[in-house]
Every structure is written in C-alpha cells, then in structure tokens.
Amino acid sequence: MRSLLRGTRVAVSTGVASVALVVGATTSTAAPSTVPAGNPALSYAVEGFEYPNAANILKERGIALRKGDGHILLSDCAVTQDIVVNTNNLDNVDRGKYCFKVTGTGKTGQLTLEVPKVISITAGNYLVQASLTSEGQTTEVGVPKYDTTVVGQGANPTGNPAVLVKLRVKG
C-alpha cells in the first residue's frame, strides 16, 4: 500500500475555497497528541439533561420542567395527547390541562417536573409511572394504557393537593 500512496496528490474543491492534500511518500509513525492539563482553551460539552426553555415555560404556563432524557416533551394538546395531566388550577393559560408527547423509537422516557394541584393523569398508548408528592410524602402511581388515574384532590376532595414531580414511560 505504501507504493500506491507515493507522490499522490488529491485536490478537493468546495466552490468557495480549494484544499490540497499531499499524502507522504514514506510510512510515518503518528505520535499521540498531548495537551497540557488545565488548558483553559479546551472545554467539554456535558449534557445536563436540563429541559430547554424551562424558565419561560414556568413563567408562561406555571409548571416547572426540570430534567429529562428528551423522550417526554410538553406539547400542545391540539397536536398530541400521549400523556395528559389535569389540574384544578383553572386560572392559567392552559386551563389546568397539560399535554406531553412521547418521542423516540424505544418509546421510553423520563421527565422530572413540578406540576401543582394535579387531579388526574391520562395515558395514551403508553404505560405511565408518575411520582407525586403531598404533605411531604411521595407516592408512585401507575397509569395503564388508554386509561385515566385519579390522584390528589381528585381522589380525595378533602385531601391536600398533589404535585406531580416525575413522569416515566415504558413502551
């Protein structure tokens, strides 16, 4: 293979600029590149799984979307209703109804959030696990496919409101 590359020149043109690549005539040994530790010029992209635009959603819609894997997304109820969370907070822009879309090929996902005054959760074609808090207690609730589970003050009108803190989907 060494003899095939000897003296080979390749030109690539992008229409804006041309780049010439000259392949060496002899074999070479590549030395590993070292970068001094603590070089401030280097940075790493670390995914924190923060929900995009969360501050605006909190301000405009009254719910806090914290972190997730990107497979459960807040959606317009006219577009999709894979998961519907109903609250008794009727004075907000959504009139107490929040819809979520499930994305991805595996149809699994998770989202930590804070939706106050939840009274029911409805699932579409997904098994949904929800974590709710009320009076300092966390409760896990399963919602079967194509069903609604009543929670919080929906289940006990004299009880304290429940806050939805986590949604999980299992295809």
Results as ranks from 00 to 15, higher is better:
residue 5 L to D: 02
residue 94 D to S: 15
residue 29 T to A: 14
residue 159 G to L: 03
residue 121 I to K: 05
residue 49 F to M: 10
residue 133 T to P: 01
residue 83 I to V: 15
residue 7 G to Q: 03
residue 93 V to Q: 11
residue 93 V to C: 01
residue 81 Q to N: 13
residue 129 Q to N: 14
residue 56 N to Y: 07
residue 171 G to N: 15
residue 127 L to A: 10
residue 165 V to Q: 11
residue 40 P to V: 09
residue 62 G to F: 09
residue 149 T to Q: 14
residue 116 P to H: 01
residue 22 V to R: 12
residue 82 D to S: 12
residue 9 R to Q: 14
residue 5 L to R: 06
residue 17 A to G: 08
residue 87 T to E: 09
residue 129 Q to W: 06
residue 58 L to G: 06
residue 142 G to H: 05
residue 45 A to H: 06
residue 90 L to T: 14
residue 11 A to I: 12
residue 160 N to P: 00
residue 37 A to M: 08
residue 144 P to F: 06
residue 29 T to V: 14
residue 59 K to Y: 08
residue 142 G to V: 10
residue 163 V to E: 02
residue 122 T to Q: 14
residue 159 G to V: 01
residue 25 A to V: 03
residue 164 L to M: 03
residue 89 N to M: 06
residue 144 P to E: 10
residue 113 L to F: 00
residue 41 A to S: 13
residue 43 S to Y: 10
residue 34 T to M: 08
residue 65 L to R: 04
residue 32 P to D: 13
residue 50 E to K: 11
residue 159 G to M: 07
residue 46 V to C: 07
residue 165 V to D: 02
residue 69 D to V: 07
residue 10 V to N: 00
residue 149 T to V: 14
residue 83 I to G: 04
residue 43 S to F: 09
residue 52 P to M: 04
residue 55 A to S: 14
residue 147 D to V: 04
residue 68 G to F: 02
residue 70 G to W: 02
residue 167 L to T: 03
residue 122 T to V: 09
residue 138 T to L: 01
residue 10 V to C: 08
residue 21 L to H: 09
residue 114 E to Q: 13
residue 72 I to E: 05
residue 18 S to T: 10
residue 77 C to T: 01
residue 92 N to M: 03
residue 15 G to S: 09
residue 48 G to N: 14
residue 147 D to G: 02
residue 94 D to C: 09
residue 44 Y to E: 15
residue 83 I to L: 09
residue 170 K to G: 12
residue 151 V to M: 02
residue 147 D to L: 00
residue 12 V to H: 02
residue 115 V to K: 03
residue 94 D to W: 00
residue 1 M to P: 06
residue 111 L to W: 03
residue 2 R to W: 08
residue 77 C to H: 03
residue 71 H to N: 15
residue 41 A to H: 14
residue 103 T to C: 02
residue 68 G to I: 00
residue 97 K to G: 06
residue 83 I to K: 01
residue 51 Y to K: 00
residue 129 Q to R: 12
residue 161 P to I: 00
residue 139 T to G: 04
residue 61 R to Q: 15
residue 38 G to S: 10
residue 3 S to A: 13
residue 40 P to G: 11
residue 95 R to V: 05
residue 133 T to S: 15
residue 89 N to E: 13
residue 85 V to L: 11
residue 33 S to Q: 12
residue 44 Y to S: 10
residue 170 K to Q: 15
residue 9 R to N: 03
residue 75 S to R: 09
residue 93 V to F: 02
residue 54 A to E: 07
residue 111 L to E: 01
residue 26 T to Q: 13
residue 57 I to E: 10
residue 169 V to F: 07
residue 21 L to Q: 04
residue 152 G to R: 03
residue 36 P to G: 13
residue 50 E to I: 00
residue 106 G to I: 00
residue 105 T to P: 11
residue 66 R to A: 06
residue 107 K to F: 08
residue 35 V to G: 07
residue 75 S to G: 05
residue 101 K to P: 01
residue 49 F to H: 13
residue 160 N to C: 03
residue 164 L to H: 08
residue 14 T to N: 15
residue 160 N to T: 09
residue 20 A to G: 11
residue 160 N to H: 06
residue 153 Q to Y: 01
residue 24 G to I: 02
residue 100 F to S: 04
residue 55 A to G: 05
residue 8 T to K: 15
residue 44 Y to I: 11
residue 108 T to C: 02
residue 59 K to N: 09
residue 138 T to P: 05
residue 169 V to N: 04
residue 119 I to Y: 00
residue 81 Q to I: 06
residue 120 S to I: 03
residue 49 F to P: 00
residue 107 K to E: 12
residue 113 L to C: 14
